[in-house]
Design a protein around this nucleic acid. Structure first.
Lengths: 224, 224
DNA sequence: CTTTGTGAATATTTTCACAGCT
DNA sequence: AGCTGTGAAAATATTCACAAAG
């Protein structure tokens, strides 16, 4: 076994990508690990080491070329090609996600929206028709969709997850407080504001022995 | 300095809490570190060690009493008392957050909603009036609100953050893809679906040398 | 017999510090 | 002169494995 890539590296990579795109928009041509570390809240040596897992992208004495570094990271992450998303739940949250500009900008396209409300089925959000969730597995399978976003009431979350998995999805973003169980091989991400707020609170109280720059900058686990 | 509490411990604590509440709802009276570890995706020894940072809550040969363990964790996190939230942005996303049942269930109360759209100001979401964002600092300060949630278009995110900080907020949840800069002492959490999807993609492709149970279960950093 | 709490061992991650390239 | 890439050190986090408690 050659190299074991720490999970943190992959997560920071997407942070760097975000920062780099910011730099690109500001017409910055080159960044040093120092600058990139500064803007992403990561130690510069760690920035450099993170890249070495995948190759050597920098020029000594100069730094990293923003454009090519973006391309490298996109290729590493697999974000250099478009990805289809199945969105389940056409309420306020679902609508917000469907219309969210950040997704297409990074190659993520909501390709199908599902709901179980007969008043919503057949109507549209933007140019997309809302389908009956009962047809989800066939549609997801037919379209080759690998990513599902769950934005339904919590009691329906588990069964929606199962439909998505039936359809062949292997990445699920859960916007519900429900604890969903998924089989091995399916990646589940919980994006519950409660989870995030809960552990943040700890650093609010007297226990707070001086927030490190780390703890401010990071968002970490939320359980499953 | 007595003990250095790993950041991960705090985050797992909120995961345990989530699981424990699930157990409570199922009228489970007692859990072992094994069961709790199983359901939260954490090694049982780690579960036990996590608790020892704060005291000894278990009974040997028996396990942990669900009810009292919940109370302990809530006290540790500071979630045993209610917290007020200022929500900025009354669009689809803001509405979804305002009506999200998970927040009040854990003692989080959206106490004020702000927007800059004159058509929205003065109208209501649920029983809460939407205020002019121009008045945010005074209102937030007056109400003693420490938590702000940003659900506005990305170009406004930085200035909203500054208004929140002016008002004395020290925890900010950013639902925008914008990179926000905050002074030391303010905790910023970015909850951008793009960020979460990006690093998930990595594990989708050929690089994927067998997802560990860890990487499936965890949700980690999203950069700032 | 079960399960905790924990010292010690391991493993992983981060940071330092500097040789070497441009 | 400035910055990368990286061995080696330090710091953290996780897991093992077992004595002690109920």
């Amino acid at each position: 076994m050659m190299k074991e890539i720490p999970q943190g590296v992959i997560e920071r990579l997407s942070t760097y990508l975000n920062c780099l795109i910011k730099f690109q928009q500001e017409n910055v041509a080159t960044v040093s690990s120092d600058k990139l570390g500064m803007s992403s809240g990561v130690n510069p040596a760690e920035v450099r080491r993170d890249f070495t897992y995948f190759g050597t992208f920098g020029k000594k004495g100069v730094g990293y070329e923003v454009d090519t570094l973006i391309q490298h990271i996109q290729r590493i992450l697999g974000a250099d090609e478009p990805h289809k998303i199945a969105l389940v739940g056409a309420g306020n949250l679902g609508s917000a996600i469907a219309q969210y500009q950040g997704l297409p900008r990074h190659g993520f396209h909501v390709s199908a929206i599902f709901d179980c409300d007969v008043n919503k089925i057949g109507t549209h959000i933007g140019h997309l028709e809302i389908f009956n969730v009962a047809n989800l597995p066939q549609i997801v399978k037919g379209a080759g969709i690998a990513i599902g976003i769950i934005a339904v009431p919590p009691h329906a979350a588990q069964s929606v997850a199962e439909l998505l998995i039936d359809g062949g999805a292997s990445i699920i973003l859960n916007y519900t407080p429900a604890l969903i169980r998924v089989p091995k091989g399916v990646q589940l991400h919980n994006t519950d504001p409660v989870q995030q707020l809960l552990h943040t609170l700890y650093y609010l109280s007297s226990n707070n022995k001086g927030l490190t720059s780390r703890s401010k900058v990071r968002v970490r686990r939320s359980g499953n």
